[in-house]
């Protein structure tokens, strides 16, 4: 299994554990100094983007038809860039969203915008590279 695929899959597993950890914190209600309801979108996106989507993207990167004999997985730099942008974007959101809910109007607002741009670019780069590998045989 190539290193890029291993990175996607192992990071997805870490996000899975992280998401369930956030889910646990969410249910600690009265014990915490902040409202755990602000963690709901973070929990959901760590689970659905960080775990489910990232795992799917990793497996697809591994098993889609080869682009060519020389470049079986297309332009690997695009897949690496997508991996980095997606995960940094997701983590920026995980930090920014609860802080934004706690006190908006500060730098946290811009963290959400940064996160949106990073994840969106990650998605675009992944699709650009994967698209060429989806071919009829």
């Amino acid at each position: 299994m190539p290193s890029i695929v291993r990175c996607y899959l192992k990071t997805a597993l870490v996000m899975f554990i992280l998401a369930l950890g956030v889910g646990l914190v969410q249910n600690l209600g009265g014990i915490l100094p902040f409202s755990p309801s602000s963690l709901t979108p973070v929990y959901f996106h760590l689970l659905m983007v960080g775990w489910v989507t990232q795992f799917i993207l990793g497996v697809a990167l591994w098993m889609l038809p080869k682009y060519s004999m020389e470049k079986p997985r297309g332009i690997q730099a695009l897949s690496w860039a997508a991996y980095i942008l997606l995960n940094i974007g997701l983590l920026v959101r995980a930090v920014g969203e609860p802080l934004n809910a706690y006190s908006s109007g500060l730098v946290w607002d811009w963290l959400l915008i940064l996160s949106a741009i990073l994840q969106w670019m990650g998605g675009i780069l992944y699709v650009i590279n994967a698209w060429k590998r989806v071919k009829v045989k």
Binding site: R93, G96, E97, N100, W108, D109, W110, L111, L112, I113, S115, A116, I117, Q119, W120
Partner: peptide, 11 residues
């Protein structure tokens, strides 16, 4: 769509 909604949450 998600990115637009998230950005709208920020500003």
């Amino acid at each position: 769509v998600g990115a637009i909604m998230l950005a709208n949450k920020g500003i």
